[in-house]
């Protein structure tokens, strides 16, 4: 890392987030109702976020950089991708297909290599959840590609 302190970057990112909040707050149309309009408190909170970011940056410039553990980039990237794919596929592929694939995939990413056991566990677990939610609690889970 060439950065002296991760909080310096973090602080600036926080300032940016605060600006986004403020932008959202200040573009709220006034409802012309009541004493305090809908934009007031969001603006206050946005300003607080910006201030916290500036504060954080200021503090970090004076502090020694901490030791941050190295990232295990490969499993992290794979896990983030797997979750993103799972959530994206949840409705189009349906609960059962996407969940079984994800359960199995994430187990593998996180280091499990007992392929047969994981396959059995993923199918069994997902089917049990399906029965619990869809059949007993009447939550309408997406059927997706399966003809349910």
């Amino acid at each position: 890392m060439t950065l002296r302190h991760p909080d310096a970057i973090g602080g600036l990112a926080v300032v940016a987030l605060g600006v986004v909040v403020l932008a959202g707050a200040l573009t709220t149309p006034d409802a012309q109702f009541g004493v305090v309009g809908p934009a007031v408190l969001p603006s206050v909170f946005g300003i607080l976020v910006v201030l916290s970011g500036l504060w954080l940056t200021a503090v970090s410039l004076r502090a020694d950089p901490p030791v941050i553990e190295a990232l295990d980039a490969r499993p992290l990237t794979l896990a983030v991708t797997a979750v993103a794919l799972y959530f994206a596929a949840f409705v189009p592929l349906g609960f059962i297909v996407s969940s079984v694939a994800f359960f199995f995939g994430l187990s593998w990413i996180l280091g499990s290599r007992a392929v047969l056991r994981d396959a059995v566990a993923s199918v069994g677990f997902v089917l049990a959840l399906y029965v619990l939610f869809e059949r007993l609690l009447t939550v309408d889970l997406p059927g997706g590609v399966l003809p349910l």
């Binding site: 049990a128 029965v131 619990l132 059949r135 007993l136 609690l137």
Partner: peptide, 9 residues
């Protein structure tokens, strides 16, 4: 869990 719900069902 299932036993609990099955009871209601």
């Amino acid at each position: 869990l299932l036993a609990g719900c099955g009871g209601v069902g």
